[in-house]
């Protein structure tokens, strides 16, 4: 079964048409990287998948359930879709451990001890178990983003969405986050990732999707897209971002 199916999705902000007839299918276990110039609608599209934004036309089916205004189906979907944000969005008034155990305890109704063990295992996986009792404000940017990934994983989602996860990080911290994401990809997670990190795309992506001005222009395996771009728009984009990469 396909993990995510977008079918002729259209969205307007007032009169501005931000998503035009988006159709995209993501299979289970597939890793899709979405790239494109700013304002192309890539963040909007990914945020429609867990309904942080609502679409006006077309249908989005996630894990077999269609996204509508029904609150209960929405909660079900959101449990299975984890999201990592550009600005981390950790909860500053809770410790790292509490950040990670909050959703498992209250949404999945896990007992506290079990949730904490789960959280510690994921914190080890992102290689910062010793920070468990600290507060987000005491961590570096790279560490915070890795916690955000662990926090999303604690819900054991079937799909992970990444919205420009490294764009707000200092260059020396990007690698540690990308390494975490690569490890995650290798474990078989379905991932949709909006990013400018082409090296990461080349290494991990099954498919790269190029968006511009609200529509999907080209899509294909990374080698094809980067080596043999078909459209002028993609050629222009690649020339702008690839500088000896």
């Amino acid at each position: 079964m396909n993990a995510i199916v977008l079918d002729k999705v259209n969205k307007w902000y007032g009169t501005m048409h931000v998503l035009r007839d988006i159709s995209l299918t993501v299979a289970t276990g597939e890793k899709v990287v979405v790239c494109g110039p700013s304002g192309s609608g890539k963040s909007t599209m990914i945020r429609c998948i867990n309904r942080l934004e609502t679409h006006q036309e077309g249908s989005i089916v996630v894990d077999g359930t269609e996204l509508t205004d029904d609150l209960r189906s929405l909660d079900t979907i959101r449990r299975e879709v984890g999201m990592v944000f550009q600005s981390f969005n950790l909860f500053p008034h809770l410790t790292i451990l509490e950040n990670c155990t909050l959703a498992p305890i209250w949404v999945r109704k896990m007992p506290k001890a079990e949730a904490e063990a789960l959280a510690m295992s994921y914190l080890e996986r992102v290689k910062i178990p010793e920070q468990a009792k600290k507060y987000p404000g005491q961590l570096s940017g790279g560490q915070q983003q890795r916690v955000a990934i662990a926090r999303a994983l604690c819900m054991r989602p079937k799909i992970m969405l990444f919205d420009e996860p490294t764009s707000a990080l200092d260059p020396e911290m990007i690698k540690e986050v990308l390494d975490t994401m690569i490890g995650l990809a290798q474990s078989g997670m379905t991932m949709v990732c909006v990013t400018h990190e082409m090296g990461f795309a080349r290494q991990v992506a099954d498919r790269v999707v190029f968006m511009d001005r609200g529509e999907i222009v080209e899509s294909g395996p990374p080698s094809t897209l980067f080596e043999a771009p078909k459209t002028d728009r993609l050629k222009l984009f690649l020339s702008q971002i690839l500088r000896g990469d």
């Binding site: 867990n50 942080l52 909660d75 959101r78 449990r79 879709v81 984890g82 999201m83 944000f85 600005s87 969005n89 950790l90 909860f91 909050l102 959703a103 209250w106 949404v107 926090r151 999303a152 819900m155």
Partner: peptide, 23 residues
């Protein structure tokens, strides 16, 4: 409050009252 806090809470599947009370 930054909008991102609400979004992160929503993305985790917290209900309205859970989100309001904890975050």
């Amino acid at each position: 409050l930054p909008k991102g806090q609400t979004e992160a809470a929503d993305a985790m599947g917290l209900s309205y009252w859970q989100k309001t009370a904890f975050i």
